[in-house]
Computed example of a mutant assay.
Amino acid sequence: MDITFMKKIFILVSIFISLSLGLLAYLFFNADSNTKVIYKDKIIIGYAPWPGYAGLFIADSKEYFKEAGLDIELKAYPGFEELSKDYVAGSIQGRANITLEAINEAYGGLEHRIVAAIDYSNGSDGIIASRNIKAIKDIKGKRVAFEHGTLEEFFLRYALDQNQLGLNDIIPINLNPEESAEAISSGIADVAVTYEPFMSKALAQIGGNKIYSSADAPGLVTDVLTFRLDFINEHSDAIQAIVGAYFKGIKLFKDSPQEANIILAKYLGVSVDQVPAQLNGVTILSLDDNKNAFTFAVGLQSLYGNMRQIGEFIKDIHSKDSKDFSFDTDLMIEPLFIRKVLK
């Protein structure tokens, strides 16, 4: 056989091996960079501690957001007031929200949209009281801790109204949900409007009573995922990736509850065995549930029906304001991203 030909074969094989090894080394040392980057900067999603945010917590812990090409930071806030302030100011792009808060923020001038329905509270929001207070009617003249201008005030107003009482019948103390629970434990307040995980801790400490909860008003408290409209318009592909990763987290929550509880315990700051009790008062919504939530209907389980009813409540509260309350709550709902995930 021709020696020159053999040399050529040897050189070609050597080149092929070198290129193959080089490619393998590149893939090994740059594995992370091969993930498609949807949005190169950090996206911050704010939240106040709540067991219903399981999908967000799991997607973060299991790095589903990272796999989708996103750098997501879940930023915890002690209460809604500070969270809403940062969101409205543009310090964060999105937040785990409540339909009531979302409408209030829009009333204040923020343009934002609901991109997913997270959960319905079914007992995890509540009004708790010391041992001698057995019912809502008993809180007249009592010290009541709640966060002004937020869901807690709306929830308290609703419960009082159902019992022919009003805010002028109580002694209000302005504290966030965690502080409200601590206030009743320390004796600063007689009654607290709060939610899980703070509610169970306080009740265990004082041996008190849950005198009203979201189970008494099913569908009233709905959690949603919202993003600022300016961010949605500029980075709709990032929003789509977030929604997809979120429902991947929901799937693990449904399929592997034990693993999910371990993750939730870390984010909620409780023991693993405490997680199931907190989740008892929450209905976490699946992708199919979202299909219904983003469908036009008059009931509270449709976002359209829910937002319209709460919008009327807020309109009534602000009836004496000089500012016009005329925006359409239907326009705050963006079903595009859910529809694409459902395909």
Rank of each mutant, 00 (worst) to 15 (best):
G55M: 05
T99L: 00
I43S: 00
G90L: 11
K137P: 05
D71H: 13
K66H: 07
G69R: 10
A68Y: 00
Y47A: 04
H112L: 08
E101L: 15
S124A: 13
A116N: 11
S121K: 03
I103Y: 02
W50E: 13
N97G: 13
I43K: 00
F57Y: 14
A106F: 01
K140V: 12
A96I: 04
V115C: 03
G94T: 02
Y64H: 12
Y64E: 08
Q93E: 15
Y77R: 03
R95Y: 09
A102M: 10
T99G: 15
K140Q: 14
N122F: 09
A54S: 10
Y53R: 02
N122W: 02
G46H: 06
L56R: 02
E105P: 00
I92A: 01
L83D: 05
I118H: 00
E63R: 15
Y47Q: 04
E101Q: 15
A59W: 00
R131C: 06
I98W: 02
F80V: 14
N104S: 10
G69H: 09
K134N: 13
S61I: 07
I114G: 02
A76R: 15
G55Q: 03
D60I: 07
S130H: 05
S130Q: 13
G108L: 08
S84D: 13
A54V: 12
E81H: 11
D60F: 11
K75G: 09
L70F: 04
F80R: 13
G46C: 11
N122P: 13
K62F: 08
G69I: 11
L74Q: 10
K140G: 14
F80P: 15
A102C: 11
L56K: 03
A76Y: 07
I136E: 02
L100W: 09
